[in-house]
Simulated scan of single mutants.
Amino acid sequence: MLNPHLLSADYLDAAVTAAHAAAAILQTHALHRSDLVIDTKQRNDLVSQADREAEAAIIDILQARTPSVGIIAEESGGQAGAQATWCIDPLDGTTNFLSGIPHYAVSIALIGHAGCQPDGRAPLPQDTPLIGVIYDPNREELFSSLYGIGAWLNGRRIQCSTTRTLDDAVLATGFPFRDFSFEPQYMPGFLDAMHQTRGVRRFGSAALDLAWTACGRYDGYWEMGLAPWDVAAGTALVRAAGGVCEDLYHQAPWPRGGYVIAANAHIASALDAMITRHL
Rank of each mutant, 00 (worst) to 15 (best):
S144V: 00
S144E: 12
S144W: 01
S145N: 03
L146M: 09
L146Q: 13
L146N: 00
Y147E: 05
Y147C: 11
Y147F: 15
Y147I: 05
G148D: 07
G148M: 08
G148H: 05
I149C: 08
I149W: 04
I149H: 14
G150S: 06
G150V: 03
A151C: 11
A151W: 07
A151S: 14
W152I: 01
W152H: 15
W152F: 12
L153I: 11
L153K: 14
L153N: 05
L153E: 06
N154F: 00
N154C: 02
N154R: 00
G155V: 08
G155R: 14
G155W: 11
G155Y: 11
R156V: 14
R156E: 15
R156H: 13
R157E: 15
R157P: 13
R157N: 12
R157A: 15
I158N: 03
I158Q: 03
I158Y: 01
Q159W: 01
Q159K: 08
C160R: 08
C160S: 11
C160T: 15
S161K: 06
S161D: 08
S161M: 09
S161H: 07
S161F: 06
T162K: 10
T162H: 10
T162W: 00
T162N: 12
T163M: 04
T163L: 02
T163K: 04
T163I: 13
R164G: 15
R164K: 14
R164W: 01
R164Q: 15
R164H: 09
R164I: 08
R164L: 11
R164A: 15
R164F: 02
T165M: 02
L166C: 01
L166I: 04
D167F: 01
D167K: 08
D168T: 10
D168Y: 02
D168K: 10
D168R: 11
A169P: 05
V170I: 14
V170W: 09
L171C: 09
L171D: 05
T173L: 04
T173A: 12
T173N: 09
G174S: 13
G174P: 00
F175K: 07
F175M: 14
F175H: 10
P176I: 13
P176N: 11
R178L: 08
R178A: 14
R178M: 12
R178E: 13
D179A: 08
D179F: 12
F180C: 07
F180W: 13
F180D: 07
S181N: 12
S181C: 06
S181E: 12
S181D: 14
F182R: 10
E183N: 07
E183V: 09
P184W: 09
P184K: 10
P184M: 10
P184R: 11
P184D: 09
P184A: 10
Q185F: 09
Q185I: 03
Y186M: 04
Y186C: 03
Y186R: 05
Y186N: 05
P188N: 02
P188Q: 03
P188R: 00
G189C: 03
F190C: 12
F190D: 08
